[in-house]
Every structure is written in structure tokens, then in C-alpha cells.
Write a protein that binds this DNA or RNA. Structure first.
Length: 580
RNA sequence: GCCAGAUUAGUUCAGUGGUAGAACACUACUUUCGUAAAGUAGGGACGUGGGUUCGAUUCCCGCCUCUGGCUCCA
């Protein structure tokens, strides 16, 4: 039976450790598992003798030299004392050995060539390890056992596949993804920028980028509006009192941007909108007849993220949420969830995302971690299950994935190059209403505790745009493109006709870019392609003679000659449809 | 925050212990062009604060910013 890919990958980790042992005497090896695209191995090196990526070729060639001497992985069962003696000067392995003993399992060593490693097994036949199917990829820091209180080890990542062809294919795929990288494409398409003066994680939106943001936001709003949502607006800071009541002041202290007033009072930038929104609800006493109250608000939030974690638009310190909160009774929850469900399913497929759902519920083994009565949790989780049954959706079960304040439905989208992103989420919140004492008067005349539903569709506009840019490769559909059509005169003496044509398009509400620059024709065409403009209208002698223009599509190529009115109609018609 | 790498013109990149070059972009002039970069000329940069040195963009240290990981992510 041929060796499995994980076994091959794990075996490469051994091979790496063997090469490192030879080249860096005294380096302590720790653990080296197989991962999705290869393997890694964590080492503790002497501080003045760490390998850098420049050494990779040398390490790889050592690995290639060692492998032919490996006949197999010989399993050796060791007694605790033998094992401890063997790794006496490697505290990491000793810790692993203690762990194995504590579980009452036997200690196994695997010997390949000269190299012996503590390992639970799962290896390939060395003859099946392709010498040209692996490549050391990068060096990174990693905490021992993933805990930042522990020492930082040096992790070496390697790629490993069944063959050189598979490795090449993987690297080609990575290169393709890199071309779509929103951090490169976004600024190239003039959608957003960063400034060293403003700071890391604080994107600035250009006119073009702002058009796209607003179009997306309007789209979500148009879907929400029919479900009875109302717009609200809130300030971006608050007295700390709000977050003391909500619990954020204690729990998320480190993530809050704090402000001191000149009078010495402490304020904070809002890291989320729910506490503010509760206070809009709390402005008066509500009858159950007036519920649900549904507040929608696209607004910026601020979180003091660690600098190392900031990345393009995916993780920022300031981001805009298309946030909404529903204040309702438990008996309304199902209906409200269904409304949000519909909005999500009207929104994401428009961009060609496939959605998967996860039911994020309590960890049955630790129900005491969660806030609220077990009875309410049962009701809530069952409501979500009913929704899934009703929608005939095969949801992923997520025990332990619930927030501490309530269960949720999480939506995952697959993009055009097969990556999966967690996008929208519908969350039930039994905590906020408790903390802020939110109630309504029920039909018996009693005060009744309400619940809250968090209902962001895009979540963060920044993050959604980062996904959308990479998903589309910057080729936005016509309705969303910041420039919908570029008008190009062939020669300078066609400028007047081009200007007139652009005017017609503009009057019709089409976003036009008229290129009257002195550049040559070829260059203007190139500019349109570079900016991924969906349509180009060309005006030259042939067109003027015929009293027409030439329409071309980014996606469909040459469309043909037609009157400017006809072209306008064509564009308007397509732009009015979100799904082509 | 931690580990590693990087930081040179608007952008993508060369290069050097004696203060720097290319391409594209920009400006001017020339060119008037039918499907992915016309020609000539010009302006424009060593992220920042220290240190070493006669002299630092180059070497050393701190910081900013970026990239890839780790940790975190209401």
C-alpha cells in the first residue's frame, strides 16, 4: 500500500530534523507534524546560530543527501528511564515524555538512518519520499505549545507533495492567489491606501473605493429595508460607564482605544455598536405590540489590535460594520432569524459565493461557561435547528462554537479560487439585554426580559471588500464597478465627439471616465484593461462617419457599433441587474 | 506583543563607507495614432531618531511602516 501524503509529510519533518541535527549541533528539536501543504518542525536554536531562509538551500541539499541512507523508520519501544536519559538535555522532549506517561501510553522512538526521534508514528517508506517534491518554505517564530507565556521557538515550514508536479502546481496556485492579493490590487485599482502618518491598520478610502463601499452598503440596506429595519446613528465614543455596564471594560480592556477628556474623564472609542444601540432601545418603555425594534447602522468601530496581527483590509484598527440589532421577545427570534437568513441569501450569491452554514451551539461538556438559563439556551438552540430544517440546509454542527451569550448561525463562503471565509453571522444575545435591563411590557402587563439579535451582513466592509477583491480579481460586476465605462477617442480630433458621448452616458447616471489625455490610443486601451473597467466605448473616424460608437466589454470582448443611445441602454440594462 | 525578513523616486526594482541609477508614472515639447506602454528633454528618492566614523543611504542600536508566521480576535 503506498504511503499516505500526511505520512510522507511527517517523514519529511523527521528528515529536516535530521539535517538540522547535523548542521546545528545543540539545536533542540521539539515537534514536527504534517500540515495542509507540507510540514513544519519547531526547534530551539542557540541565539547566535539560527538558520535564516538563506540557509534553506544548504539544509535542503543535506536532506537530499541523508534520505538515500534511510531504509525505513524503525520503531523502538523505550522505557521511561531510557527515554528520559536519551533526551536529558532537551526539556521539550522531557515534557512530551511526561505527557505520554501521564496518559499511560507507551513511549516510542523512531530510528531512520542515524536519526532517532521521539514520535508516536505514522511514517512513509523513505523510497516514496520524493526528493524533488519538497521545498523548505520559510522560517517563523512559534511559541512552545502555542502559549505565548512559553519560550519562542524557531519554526521551519516546508512544502511537501507526492511529486514535483504537485509541488509546482501548488506553487503556481499560490502565485495566482498572490496576483489577486487585495493588498496589491486595491491600491493598484485606486480603491484605498495607507499612510505612515495616519498609521498601521487604518485604511483610507479613495473616491473610487468609496463608491464601491457605498454601493455595497446601499445594496445591503435595500435588502434590509423590506424587513422593517430602521436606520439609526450613534457617536463613535462613549463614557466608560457604557462598557462597564456591558462588561467590555473589564473583559476587552486591552482592545479598547481609550481617551481622556481635559476634565480627566475616561472615554473609549467604540469597538462595537451593540451597547450604544441598547441605549436607543432603552429610551422608553416598550409594549410587546411595538416589538421587534430593528436598528441598522453602518458605522466605524475601533479596536486596538496588536501590530503583528494587522493585515491589509483583513484585520484593521478601524473598520466599518454594516451592523444591525433586533430587539425582540424570544417568541420573535425564529421569524427574525429567518429574515436575516433571507438577506444573507439574497446578498452573497450575487457575487457568486457559495454559502455553508454552521450551527454554533453550547459545548455540552461545559454548559456552565455560558450565560443565561439552560431553558433559554434549549429554546434558542432548538429554534435555530428548526430554521435549518425548514430551510432544508445541511448545517455543520459546531458544539462549543457559540458565543458565551448565545448561540449563532455562522455562514462560510467559498471564493473563486476555492478558499473558504467566515462571512456573515446571526447571533442571539441573551447577555446584553440582561446587563442593560432591557424589557418590554407583555400582554399580561408584566415587564418581560427581551433578547437581542446581532445581524451584520457583510460584517466588516473592509474585510468583505478584501474577500471580494480577491474573489473577483478586481473584475467587479458592472453595477459595482467604480468606473463603469471608459470613453476613448482614437485621435485628438475625435475628442469633441467623445466628450459628447460621455455626457450622454453621464446624464443617464452611468459612471464614466473620459480619457482625453494626449497619450496614444494603445496606451488608453491599456489603461482601461489595467483598471479592469467593464466597458470601453471607442470613437474614431469609422464611428463618426456612421454616427455611432464602438462598444467593447472587458469580459465578452468586442460588442460592436451602435448609437450612443443604444449603448447607454445596454449598459443601464446590465447595471440594473446584479446577477448577470 | 513575540520570531524572522524587508524598508532606495509616485510605483516596481538596481547599487554604494566618499550622498545614487533603470523602467513605468509625472511635467514640457514633438507625435495624431483603431485595440495592452510613441519620441525627446526635465523634475523627483536612500522611512525615522541616535551611535561608530574625517565622512553613513551603506555598519551598529531604538522606533515607524510593510511581509510571512506565532499568540489574540467580543
Amino acid at each position: 500500500m503506498p504511503s499516505s501524503l500526511p505520512d510522507i509529510r511527517h517523514s519529511f519533518a523527521h528528515l529536516l530534523a535530521a539535517a538540522i541535527e547535523k548542521m546545528y549541533p545543540g539545536a533542540k528539536n521539539t515537534i514536527g507534524p504534517a500540515i495542509d501543504n507540507g510540514f513544519y518542525y519547531d526547534f530551539e536554536f542557540a541565539p547566535d546560530n539560527k538558520p535564516s531562509e538563506k540557509e534553506f538551500l544548504k539544509i535542503e541539499s543535506n536532506m537530499r543527501k541523508l534520505l538515500p541512507h534511510w531504509k525505513g523508520f524503525e520503531k523502538i519501544v523505550a522505557t521511561p528511564d531510557e527515554a528520559k536519559a536519551m533526551f536529558a538535555n532537551n526539556p521539550y522532549k522531557l515534557e512530551l515524555i511526561e505527557g505520554i506517561l501521564a496518559k499511560g501510553e507507551e513511549i516510542t522512538l523512531y530510528k531512520s538512518g542515524e536519526f532517532v526521534d521521539l514520535c508516536r508514528g505514522g511514517h512513509a517508506d523513505p523510497r516514496e519520499m520524493p526528493l524533488d517534491g519538497f521545498k523548505l518554505e520559510r522560517v517563523a517564530g512559534a511559541y512552545w505549545r502555542g502559549d505565548e507565556k512559553n519560550s519562542m521557538l524557531t519554526r521551519i515550514y516546508g512544502l511537501a507533495f507526492n511529486s514535483k508536479e504537485e509541488l509546482d502546481a501548488y506553487q503556481a496556485q499560490i502565485a495566482e492567489a498572490k496576483k489577486r492579493d487585495h493588498k496589491v490590487l486595491g491600491p493598484a485599482l485606486d480603491l484605498f491606501t495607507f499612510s505612515d502618518l495616519v498609521g498601521a491598520g487604518l485604511p483610507l478610502w479613495t473616491p473610487k473605493g468609496t463608491i464601491v463601499r457605498n454601493l455595497l452598503d446601499d445594496f445591503v440596506w435595500s435588502l434590509r429595508a423590506k424587513h422593517g429595519y430602521e436606520r439609526v446613528e450613534i457617536p463613535h465614543i462613549t463614557k466608560k460607564d457604557l462598557y462597564i455596564t456591558s462588561g467590555h471594560w473589564d473583559k476587552y480592556q486591552d482592545d479598547l482605544f481609550k481617551i481622556k477628556t481635559r476634565e480627566g474623564h475616561e472615554f473609549a472609542m467604540k469597538p462595537m455598536n451593540c451597547p450604544h444601540h441598547t441605549q436607543i432601545y432603552a429610551r422608553k418603555q416598550w409594549s410587546y405590540r411595538e416589538l421587534p425594534q430593528r436598528y441598522a447602522n453602518t458605522t466605524a468601530c475601533y479596536r486596538d489590535e496588536q501590530t503583528g496581527e494587522l493585515s491589509g483590509l483583513s484585520r484593521t484598527r478601524a473598520f466599518s460594520q454594516d451592523d444591525a440589532h433586533v430587539f425582540c421577545r424570544m417568541t420573535d427570534v425564529k421569524a427574525e432569524f429567518l429574515k436575516i437568513w433571507d438577506v444573507i441569501h439574497e446578498f452573497y450569491p450575487v457575487f457568486g459565493f457559495d454559502l455553508k452554514v454552521r450551527l454554533s451551539r453550547r459545548d455540552p461538556a461545559a454548559t456552565d461557561k455560558y450565560l443565561g438559563s439552560a431553558a433559554n439556551w434549549d429554546i434558542a438552540e432548538n429554534l435555530l435547528r428548526e430554521i435549518l430544517t425548514e430551510k432544508k440546509v445541511d448545517a455543520i454542527d459546531g458544539p462549543g462554537e457559540a458565543a458565551f451569550y448565545g448561540p449563532k448561525l455562522d455562514f462560510m463562503a467559498s471564493d473563486s479560487i476555492g478558499r473558504e471565509w467566515q462571512v456573515a453571522t446571526i447571533q442571539l444575545d441573551m447577555n446584553m439585554p440582561e446587563r442593560f435591563d432591557l424589557t418590554c411590557v407583555n400582554d399580561k402587563g408584566e415587564k418581560e426580559r427581551i433578547v437581542m439579535i446581532h445581524a451584520a451582513i457583510m460584517g466588516s466592509l473592509e474585510r468583505f471588500l478584501s474577500i471580494l477583491i480577491e474573489h473577483t480579481g478586481g473584475n467587479f460586476p458592472l453595477w459595482l464597478a467604480p468606473v463603469q465605462v471608459k470613453v476613448i477617442p482614437v485621435r485628438e480630433d475625435h475628442d469633441a465627439h467623445a466628450t459628447k458621448a460621455a455626457e450622454v452616458l453621464k446624464m443617464a447616471g452611468i459612471r464614466v471616465d473620459l480619457d482625453l489625455s494626449p497619450a496614444g490610443f494603445g496606451k488608453k486601451i491599456r489603461g482601461a484593461k489595467d483598471m479592469k473597467v467593464p466597458y470601453t466605448i471607442i470613437i474614431g473616424d469609422k464611428d463618426i462617419e456612421a454616427g455611432k460608437v464602438t462598444l467593447e466589454s472587458r469580459d465578452k470582448g468586442q460588442i460592436g457599433q451602435m448609437s450612443i443611445e443604444e449603448a447607454t441602454k445596454t449598459l443601464l440594462e446590465e447595471a440594473s441587474r446584479k446577477i448577470s
